[in-house]
């Protein structure tokens, strides 16, 4: 790299060629980037759809089809390409017969090293959380990542109660993480000893999300229940857009 002093004494190139070069390069790179973007866009969308679908079906046992909804303070609406974009995105999972099996939503809280992002499946019939999947994790390997691998911890989410209170504006019992081995109530999460902070983060994330989402979601749950679920054929088609 030449020093600025050396640049200063060089005869200056006229501005014309400089601008022409920059314009040319900019156009070339713009062309290449847009080309790649257009070529990969459908594939990436399909990949993402498949990843979300796999996660949703994992946290909602028995679901084979999915449909997306937006939850706002006042309503629950199905996601359409030109519909509203504000609100909390949830994924509803249906079984073969089109019965609603559960609703999946995202939650996140600060863990030991960084944010833990997870997806959880909520079963409206038993008013409980049926499964969680960690989407993004930067916890200490061997300790914090036990929230994925530890069988006892994962068993907390076979049926974790998240019932709305009589007033319908908050949970009847806050979801809390308790010390390892002391779980007594269905709304408590048994922590992993040695990974307390990560376990607490999961509890915190679920509680925060459920407290906020369920009071808005439950009054309109019939919208989701009665929405025509996509047939399986449609589901596998949709990736091609």
């Amino acid at each position: 790299m030449s020093t600025p002093e050396a640049q200063a004494i060089q005869p200056s190139t006229p501005t014309g060629p400089m601008i022409r070069t920059l314009m040319g390069i900019a156009m070339l790179s713009g062309f290449l980037v847009v080309l790649t973007y257009q070529l990969t866009k459908p594939i990436i969308a399909e990949n993402q759809r498949r990843a979300i679908e796999a996660a949703v079906f994992q946290v909602i046992p028995g679901a084979v089809a999915r449909r997306d909804f937006l939850v706002t303070e006042s309503a629950v609406t199905a996601v359409t390409p030109d519909g509203p974009t504000e609100g909390v995105l949830v994924y509803a999972g249906y079984d073969q017969q089109g019965n609603l099996k559960g609703v999946a939503a995202k939650a996140g809280a600060q863990g030991y090293a960084d944010m833990i992002h997870l997806l959880y499946g909520y079963d409206a019939d038993c008013e409980c959380i049926r499964g969680i999947k960690v989407l993004k994790l930067a916890e200490t390997p061997g300790l914090g990542d036990k929230i994925i691998t530890d069988a006892n911890f994962v068993a907390n989410f076979d049926a974790l109660e998240a019932k709305l209170s009589a007033g319908g504006d908050k949970l009847a019992n806050e979801i809390v993480t308790v010390k390892a081995g002391t779980k007594q109530n269905p709304w408590e999460i048994d922590a992993i000893s040695g990974a307390t902070i990560s376990s607490q983060a999961v509890g915190k994330a679920l509680n925060q999300s459920a407290q906020q989402l369920l009071p808005q979601l439950m009054p309109h749950i019939d919208v989701i229940r009665n929405a025509p679920p996509p047939s399986e054929a449609e589901t596998s088609d949709s990736g091609t857009q």
Binding site: Q10, S12, T21, L28, S29, L32, V33, T40, I44, N47
Partner: peptide, 30 residues
């Protein structure tokens, strides 16, 4: 490429190819 704008040019070229790689990897495996 005129001397004065060479670094800017190089960076734009490099950034272009990196963007291409970025999208390609997304398409290959999320």
């Amino acid at each position: 490429i005129p001397k004065q704008v060479r670094i800017a040019t190089y960076i734009v070229i490099i950034a272009t190819f990196v963007t291409i790689v970025d999208y390609t990897i997304q398409a290959i495996s999320l």
